[in-house]
Each structure stands twice: as C-alpha cells, then as structure tokens.
C-alpha cells in the first residue's frame, strides 16, 4: 500500500515518526506552513521556518525514503498580527522554489477583515505563480467559515478546481463538493474527523477529489491516521483501487497541478549507517 499524506507538520515530529510512517506505507508528504503553537514576532522567523521546509525537512524525510514537499503562506491566525503580515511581501521569493507545490495554509481562523485580505492576496499569488492553493477552514463557526471561504475563492483569479478546502466534516462536505474544489479531511485522535466518520463520508460522497490527511503536528495527533483510514476502508468493503485513489492518486493529482512534484526519493547526501540525522555525541 502506498500512502501520500497531503497535510502533515513534520517539523514537529521525530525521526521515529518518519520510520513508523515509512513502515505503514507513507512514501510522500506535503508539509503546509502553519502556526508554530508559539506566536512568531517577525517575518524573519517565518523565513527560517520556510527555509527549514525547503532544506532540512526534505533532507530528514529522504533519510527515511519519504518524498517531502511543502506549501508556503502566511497562516490565518498570524494574518491578524501586524508584526507578521509583512511576510506577504516575501512570499513571491519562495513561491518560485522547486519544493513548493501550493500556496497554503491560507483561509480563516476567526473570520476577520485581516484574514479576508490575506486570503484574497494569497489566492492571487497562487494564480500568479501557477500554483494550486490549500485553504484551511476554521475550527470554530465552520459552516459559515466554509461559505465565506468559497465566496472568496469564487471572486478570486484561481479556479475552484485548483483549490483544496481542508478540515472538512459532515457539515461542510456537501457545499465544498458542490463548489468544485478538492476535499480535504483531517483525521485526528479526538477532534476533527475520525476513521469511522471518514469512511462514512466516503461511502456517502464517493472518493472523487477526496484527500485524507493526518494533519499531525505539535498537538495531540497521529501521523499514522492515513493508514488507519486505509485499513478501515478495506475492512468496510472499499477496494484496493479506492484506497489507492484516495490515499495516493488524488493527492498526486492535486499537488501535481503545480508541475513540481518529484516523487522519486534519493537521499540528498551520503548517509552514516543509513542515518545521517545525527546529533553531537553520536
């Protein structure tokens, strides 16, 4: 079984996770840029983060046989912080990079005017750079947030079929599907979606344009949730082809819209005993 996790924050995860993910079948990930849990206070802090997503993290992933790409954006939460907003001016310099396969995560957190303008500006950046966009939907007031998101997408230069609307659930999937956007579901231990609900959604709405991710980060989350969904799909009567479609071909098709996916992994440098992610003392 081959798995593509289209949304996972590997900067927060350990090499044990990479090892377990590879063993579970994960061969490719996309790491969207997001909030760090601790607020940033300047664009320089974003730059260091983006550089890690384009250097150190793909290097780490390659040591474990996993292809790593990223999406770049000012996230919705920090779009509200005037100290962070100037990073928008630096995004074009990153959006030309080979490892960047979308603009994201952009979207709404608290549905403020500042989030409105950051979302609209970043959808335009995606259109300008030939990239699709990963749009986060809010965790609070989700249905209203989804509707406002879809309105902004409709008004943008980016067609809906180049937009992945993420963190969907039973209450938002229908309107998102009707919009023509790609449909992202984050499967979590407690919150967002779980495996059973995910399989029920797949049964009701079908596997077309559906992507399933773990969205694993620094909070309570599980980088193997993609595999759990795949296993439950098979147990509940979906075919191996359905599983491959949802967990591999759909994310490849969506991020492939960038023209920048490179899924063959060659470790970028020599390794030490198969693992050069070493620390002092080793």
């Amino acid at each position: 079984m081959r798995i593509f996790d289209p949304h996972i924050h590997m900067a927060s995860r350990t090499t044990d996770d990479y090892e377990a993910m590879y063993a579970a079948g994960v061969r490719a990930v996309v790491e969207p840029s997001f909030w760090l849990g601790q607020p940033r206070t300047s664009p320089a802090s974003f730059r260091d983060y983006f550089d890690a997503l384009l250097g150190w993290e793909p290097f780490r992933a390659a040591q474990y046989g996993i292809a790593h790409h990223c999406t770049i954006a000012l996230n919705p939460k920090e779009a509200n912080d005037p100290r962070c907003v100037p990073v928008l001016e630096e995004l074009p310099g990153y959006l030309v990079k080979d490892g960047v396969v979308a603009v994201g995560e952009t979207g709404y957190d608290s549905m403020t005017a500042a989030e409105d303008s950051a979302l609209a500006a970043q959808l335009q950046l995606a259109a300008d750079h030939g990239l699709p966009a990963l749009v986060h939907t809010p965790h609070r007031d989700k249905l209203a947030g989804l509707r406002r998101t879809l309105d902004v997408v409709r008004e943008s230069a980016l067609p809906a079929d180049r937009v992945l609307v993420d963190h969907l659930n039973e209450t938002t999937v229908k309107e998102a599907k009707d919009s023509g956007a790609w449909l992202g579901f984050s499967v979590y231990p407690d919150t967002k979606m779980d495996e059973k609900r995910m399989v029920a959604v797949l049964r009701e709405y079908g596997p077309e344009r559906v992507l399933v991710n773990s969205a694993a980060d620094w909070g309570r989350s599980d980088p193997l949730k993609t595999r759990r969904v795949a296993d439950l799909m098979l147990a509940e009567g979906f075919t191996e082809d359905d599983v491959d479609r949802v967990l591999w071909r759909n994310p490849v098709a969506f991020y492939g819209l960038s023209g920048r996916l490179a899924l063959d992994v060659a470790p970028p440098g020599p390794t030490h005993e198969g693992n050069s992610v070493l620390r002092g003392g080793e």
Binding site: G55, F59, P268, G269, P270, R279
Partner: peptide, 9 residues
C-alpha cells in the same frame, strides 16, 4: 554548522 550531509559534502 548544519547537519545536512548534502550541504556538508
């Protein structure tokens, strides 16, 4: 200063 062996090499 990095631990990226591609850069070190």
């Amino acid at each position: 200063r990095t631990n990226d062996t591609g850069l070190i090499a």
